[in-house]
Amino acid sequence: MQITVTNVSYTYMPGGPFAVEALRDVTVTFASGETHAIIGATGSGKSTLLQLLNGLEKPSEGSIDAGGHTITADSRQKDLFDLRRHIGMVFQFPEQQLFAETVLEDVMFGPLNYGDDRETAEKKAYRALEKTGLPPSLAERSPFTLSGGQMRRAAIAGVLALEPKLLLLDEPTAGLDPDGQEEIMRLFSEWQQEEADRTLLLITHDMNLTARKADHIVLMESGRVRTEGTPSSLWTREDLIEEGVLPLPETSRILAGLCTESKAPPAVDAFTVEDAADRIASWVRKGEPDA
């Protein structure tokens, strides 16, 4: 599913003394079948944008086209229902989306809501729980008695059980243990590879993850799109790095720290440990007698 955002602005509590202009004239396209990362400082408007894409909030100005559905200030909730059934959204804090009496009921809710019978919904739910690494023994527990990371997994299970075409993920790996972060990202890639037009948008502060997984990065700043591009095109932009608006992945930070008195610095766009090691090794050998 392709998403086109055109001149979108959004204001919380418009007109009042506490009005907050969270998005200002945002125009951006999220191509179908790709992984998009939305990054940017605290309060830059990332979660607000995701809520608009999901039709949870409507733009104050401008329009959004998601797979042929148009969302504007005048859209009615009824029209958005059909769009929403194809969208899986994971909220920044899983507590924001869990609500049922048991974990199982929570995960079954989506499939039931969109027409599955109980048996099918339950099957889908158990499968999704297993995929996210939640033991079946937790299925009957109240979601609010889960640990933070278990809640995150339950929320993700609920979204995967919907078999969505578009995933909107707000900090999906926050609170997961390092193993879990990898497993969950693998799940998302598998989901994406099942069909050609599956689009994934994720908000994250994890630059290592962004650099390794994103096809396209959108950098937000104070409610606007500051810039966008591929990992390599962004992390070779010295202006952004110097200004401090674009944090570096850990491997790039190490590359950027190498002293440059006697030889030219290596490029910093190596994002896996192996790539960074290759680059540092050849940099170290440069200038050695038999290099």
Binding site: G40, A41, T42, Q92, G148, E171, A174, G175, H205, M207, G244, P247
Partner: peptide
């Protein structure tokens, strides 16, 4: 308790 999980890298 994971008190900086939602902060951007420089704030963290």
């Amino acid at each position: 308790d994971e008190a900086t999980s939602m902060l951007d890298p420089s704030a963290r």
